[in-house]
Design a binder for these strands. Structure first.
Length: 420
RNA sequence: GUGGGUGUAGCUCAGCUGGCAGAGCACUGGGUUGUGAUCCCAGGUGUCGCGGGUUCAAGUCCCGUCACUCACCCCA
């Protein structure tokens, strides 16, 4: 006999805790809907080349973390490691950028990265994301950031901070990159860090080791080397954030792991999660759409980690959602009563009431216990005596108060009781 | 890919220098033949992760292995 376990690094969410997972995903999605973002449902696998070209061949995500396989037609397929590339592909493919701009879309779903799992880092994880495509307006950057902030606030989270910076664009980042590399080449760095300085010099600025931090303390920063346009854009974003009442701190050493980001980039950080503290991040991407074969339009978006936001809630003692399974629980005494309650449950459900029953011939004590554990506010107790008198006992489980209601008016009586 | 930690009941864990496999929670039944959440009683045949070794005797010691977990790297 073989027994199975979930693949390495993949979380299962089941009741009652899964109610919190759903509530987090739904609360973050609602924040996007409130700002006029429409839902887009995308495939979880795409042409491998889409991610290689969109995210960047040299990124860790593409070079060593993708689930890539060949399908039966010999095509190279990859389970999506992030959301933006797929959205851009769909926008280009269906001409969603041919109408009124910006095109505002949100998505929610699973993503996959073949990393070594640890606290808050899974091989299958969930994100809610938005993309606003086609307009390069600092007010839109600020809106996207404010939507993420509103989502986290709606969950009740307070222990996070927002960090922002600007990564410049193609007119100023290449020059800055050279300047930074020149600076880094003068430092006594170890072999691996030296290699990193070649591939992605900005990443060296984000090194966690104190000795490296000290070495790069005087390094030139992107924010001090922005083009006039990028600088102006960045200043306007900060101004709009202030107008929106969104608090932020500037982190000029912030680094993003995906190549497409330009200008505004941001990250939401929570300290209660362990080492993987980012609960969401995103930014503007100027060249991505053109890179993927579309118009040269800019976009801005974010990805929020649903799993991590849930961990953040747990760290703050917040329990999102309602773990109760039903409003009313039926307790039948005997077969005739069960038949009646099964029918009544159907009627109540049709009327929008959540109903469960004691199944399997439980005794009265066991059925009452099941009613209690179900989280229902009311129990409906039905036995021979009640059937004879044409009534059913409606018991409020919190107070223990119970009274008889007519069997033929049970739906109305229950709805009235629940409305109180 | 590289380190550290941990593997005992459905869950959380205790189990001392080797000597009968345990607790709490959860679950089921009963105390109360029509009332839960409180209380009392009863209910456990667990490959002690797996494989080998040492020993009269291994959950405990040794070797190997696998899994989980935290961290590095990186990211949501």
């Amino acid at each position: 006999m073989t027994s199975f376990s979930a693949p390495k690094g993949v979380p299962d969410y089941f009741p009652p805790a899964s109610a919190s997972f759903v509530a987090v995903r739904e609360t973050l999605s609602e924040a996007a809907r409130r700002a006029g973002y429409g839902y887009i449902e995308l495939p979880v696998f795409e042409d491998t080349a889409l991610f290689a070209r969109g995210v960047g061949e040299s990124t860790d995500v593409v070079s060593k973390e993708m689930y890539t396989f060949e399908d039966r037609g010999g095509r190279s397929i990859t389970l999506r490691p992030e959301g933006t590339a797929g959205v851009m592909r769909a926008v280009i493919e269906h001409g969603l950028d041919r109408g009124q701009l910006p095109t505002k879309l949100y998505y929610a779903g699973q993503f996959f990265r073949a990393e070594n799992p640890q606290a808050g880092r899974y091989r299958q994880f969930h994100q809610v994301g938005v993309e606003a495509i086609g307009v390069d307006d600092p007010a839109l950057d600020a809106e996207v950031i404010a939507v993420a902030d509103a989502g986290f606030r709606a969950l009740g989270l307070t222990g996070y901070r927002l960090e922002i910076t600007s990564l410049g664009d193609s007119t100023c980042r290449p020059q800055y990159r050279e300047k930074l590399q020149a600076f880094l080449s003068t430092l006594p760095l170890d072999e691996e860090t030296r290699r990193r300085a070649e591939i992605n010099p900005l990443r060296v600025l984000d090194d966690k080791r104190p000795e490296v931090r000290e070495l790069v303390a005087e390094a030139p920063l992107m924010v001090d080397n922005l083009s006039p346009e990028c600088r102006d854009h960045y200043e306007q974003v900060k101004g709009h954030l202030n107008d929106l009442g969104v608090k932020f701190t500037e982190n000029p050493r912030m680094v993003r792991g995906l190549d497409y980001y330009t200008k505004t980039t941001f990250e939401f950080v929570h300290d209660g999660l362990g080492s993987q503290s980012g609960i969401g991040g995103g930014g503007r991407y100027d060249g991505l759409m053109e890179q993927l074969g579309g118009q040269p339009l800019s976009g801005v978006g974010f990805g929020l980690g649903v799993d991590r936001a849930l961990l953040a809630c747990q760290a703050e003692g917040i329990v999102p959602g309602d773990p109760s399974r039903c409003d009313v629980f039926g307790v039948p005494l005997g077969e005739a009563a069960k038949a009646r309650l099964v029918a009544i449950a159907g009627e109540l459900r049709a009327a929008g009431v959540r109903v469960d029953l004691a199944y399997g011939g439980k005794g009265l004590k066991g059925s009452m216990k099941a009613a209690d554990r179900s989280g229902a506010r009311y129990a409906l107790v039905l036995g021979e005596r009640d059937i004879e008198s044409g009534s059913v006992q409606l018991k409020e489980l919190g107070s223990g108060e119970q009274h008889a209601v007519p069997l033929d008016g049970v739906v109305g009586a229950v709805r009235e009781a629940l409305a109180r």
